[in-house]
Simulated assay, not measured.
Amino acid sequence: MLLVLPILTESVTLNLSNSFKQFNTIFLSILIEAIPFVLIGVLIAGFIQIFITEDHIRAWIPKNKVMAVFMSCVVGALFPACECGIVPIVRRLIGKGVPLYAGIGFLLTGPLINPIVIISTYMAFGNDLEMALMRMGVGFVAAVLIALVVSIVYKSSQLKRKSKSGSSIAQPNKKQPLVTRVHDMMKHSIDEFFDMSKYLIIGALVAAILQTYVSAQSLFLFGDGLIQSTVIMMALAYFLSLCSEADAFIGASFRNLFPSTSILAFLIYGPMIDLKNTIMLLSVFKAKFVFMLFLLITSIVFACVYLTSFL
């Protein structure tokens, strides 16, 4: 008995050490992937705060809701941002007067179908244009539908509070020297970065814990039908919290296990909503709205992807 105890102790210590190394690797990889885009996002948010006025916003956004939603989704599709970096941009846009539904359209399409994501999808699937086009087309339709529902249900901005960073920075003033305005932009961006980064760290921490200590094989207990496999892939997309510029390579690795419809759900759902992004959204919007947005994205993405299986 005395001889067995040291062996068991050594085994447990080794397992804990290996699991902690895995957790540490995943946690750092999520942060390293996300932080550059968050930096870009807060710089753009600072630019919007200092150089863009409410009059500019009103001139750019069509008064027709459908046209506003469509335009926001098109602009988002052309904007290279990840699901983390786009959150501070959307918060600043909505705070400046962009309607909630237009902000949501931009929020959903930006990380999902921007040029970098489409190219990476094309390359990940062996230069297969079909999957890239399906991701772009089905994802765009789903984003438009989600934003339209938001435009019908919600009339207010649903922002939780005014950002602390926004309250301490001067409002746009064309009479100020350019150097002063750039200084204010950088000051705002720094405040915004520290405000958003703490939620990114919490989200990355939770995602890393789940990836390390929850076995992916447990998800396969639900079965292997089309509906079950689609739900599994959407769950994986949510909890893995991958950067949208790299998720296609992970999705492609499941081609021998899941049908293309389920993989398409993985590629569309993850960039729209994932674990770390949810925590960041909770820091910006009211919790009830984030919960309803989560249900809305889940149901509409599932329905759109499932319908493609009949085409």
Rank of each mutant, 00 (worst) to 15 (best):
L210A: 13
L200R: 01
S299W: 01
S189P: 01
A237D: 00
V69D: 00
F194A: 04
F20V: 14
A246H: 05
G223N: 06
V66L: 06
S17Y: 13
K65G: 01
S218E: 05
T298C: 05
H188A: 08
R91E: 11
G203E: 08
V144Q: 04
S253Y: 11
L281Y: 12
A59Y: 12
Y199W: 15
R181K: 13
S241F: 04
K21R: 11
R91Q: 15
M71K: 09
K164C: 03
I273F: 04
G203Q: 06
L257K: 12
S241C: 06
P111F: 02
M280R: 08
I7F: 15
F289G: 02
F27R: 03
S167C: 07
F47M: 08
I209A: 13
M234A: 10
D184T: 01
W60V: 13
I61S: 05
M233E: 11
F254G: 14
N127M: 08
I57Q: 06
G126P: 12
M1K: 12
S19V: 04
V74K: 04
H188E: 07
F258M: 15
S218M: 11
L14Y: 07
L148N: 02
V87Q: 04
K187D: 14
I26P: 03
Q158K: 12
V153S: 00
A132V: 07
D191W: 11
I7V: 14
Y269D: 03
T278Q: 09
L108M: 14
K187P: 02
I279G: 02
N64Q: 10
W60T: 14
L100D: 04
Q228D: 09
F193E: 13
M1P: 13
L31M: 15
S229I: 00
F302V: 06
G110H: 04
S215V: 01
K96G: 15
V150L: 04
V149Q: 00
M292S: 11
I146L: 02
V75P: 03
A147L: 01
S72V: 07
T212Y: 10
L205G: 09
G137P: 05
M196L: 05
I146F: 03
I7W: 09
I40Y: 08
F302Q: 03
V87E: 08
L108P: 02
C243T: 12
L210M: 14
S120W: 04
K276A: 12
L129R: 09
L31K: 06
I190L: 15
A246Y: 12
L107Y: 11
K164R: 06
E245R: 11
K63M: 08
K288S: 10
S19G: 03
V141P: 05
I201Y: 05
I263E: 13
F79Q: 02
I227Q: 05
M67L: 15
L307P: 01
K155P: 00
Q211N: 15
N64S: 12
P99A: 07
L28Q: 10
K160Q: 07
G223E: 11
M1I: 07
V301I: 09
S197H: 10
I116H: 12
F70E: 02
Q217P: 00
C243R: 02
T308H: 12
D247E: 13
I297F: 06
L39C: 13
G139F: 08
